[in-house]
Amino acid sequence: MDKGFSHLDDASLIQNIQQGSHEAFATIVNRHTNRFYRIAYRLVFNKDEAEDMVQEAFLRLWERPQLWNPSRQAKFTTWFYKVVISLCLDLNKKKRPVHLPEDMELLDRHPGQDVLLGIHQEQALLEGFIKQLPARQQLALNLTFYEGLSNQEAADIIGIKVKALQSLIMRAKTTLKEKVRRYLPGGSI
């Protein structure tokens, strides 16, 4: 379907989309859907919602492709990360606050005990730890550790300076390290 466009870079594809090319749009969707789904999933913690957020972001691009201006924004992906993240954060605001799983209280009363939790329980605990981080710390962790973006690119996406981003990463990891040490002392992960 997109044979004529697959060799084009993102900026050229957007120019074609701005002229109404659905094939160019198909190319960019096929090229980037998984990448943006990953960050959406990491932020909303739910497959269906993550898919909805990615779909909504792409549809906005299709309806108003002129919103991305290559002369103002450095890279298409940087700008589109912002679109997806913004949608996800809006969705999260509508959700109820996160509470720790009951298992954690049990573990906390007996630090160091040799409790073997199932992998699913451990994953649930880890999700809980991450959900409890402030939104900006979560973002910094997701973009750098899970997405593998450079500090500079992650800082551009969040809209902060690199030093501030590094501070967010340090705080996020320090908190997580402490919680892992405390609640998952002898787990399988």
Partner: peptide, 21 residues
């Protein structure tokens, strides 16, 4: 951190986006 739960997207996600567009 690498053991964090992750679910792959539906295989037809791209097609759904294009259809909706």
């Amino acid at each position: 951190l690498k053991t964090r739960k992750y679910e792959e997207p539906s295989s037809d996600l791209g097609e759904r986006i294009l259809s909706a567009s």
